[in-house]
């Protein structure tokens, strides 16, 4: 039971990140250059990427899949 709950929790978390990758459907991102001349949406996506890596790290450490 606990294992199933764990699967659902992690699945929901990764699904939330997957939704964040589709933020361009919800927001109108400006294309004008920002930090280092790169557009803001590019930095936002880098943030999403780093969030995903952090979640993956904890998933791999905590998730007992045996």
């Amino acid at each position: 039971m606990k294992e199933k709950k764990q699967v659902y929790t992690w699945s929901l978390l990764f699904l939330a990140i997957a939704l964040l990758t589709q933020s361009n459907l919800l927001f109108e991102f400006s294309s004008s250059p920002w930090l280092l001349g790169f557009p803001k949406w590019l930095w936002f996506m880098i943030g999403v990427h780093l969030l995903f890596v952090a979640c993956l790290y904890f998933f791999i450490q905590k998730f007992k899949d045996d």
């Binding site: 250059p33 280092l36 001349g37 790169f38």
Partner: peptide
């Protein structure tokens, strides 16, 4: 930053999230 500004002035669509000519549809 300067190189990016130069390209942006040349073709801003290269900096859009959809890509040049709206390549990336949803």
């Amino acid at each position: 930053a300067t190189a990016n500004e130069l390209v942006y002035n040349l073709d801003p669509t290269l900096f859009s999230i959809e890509g040049k000519d709206g390549y990336y549809t949803p």
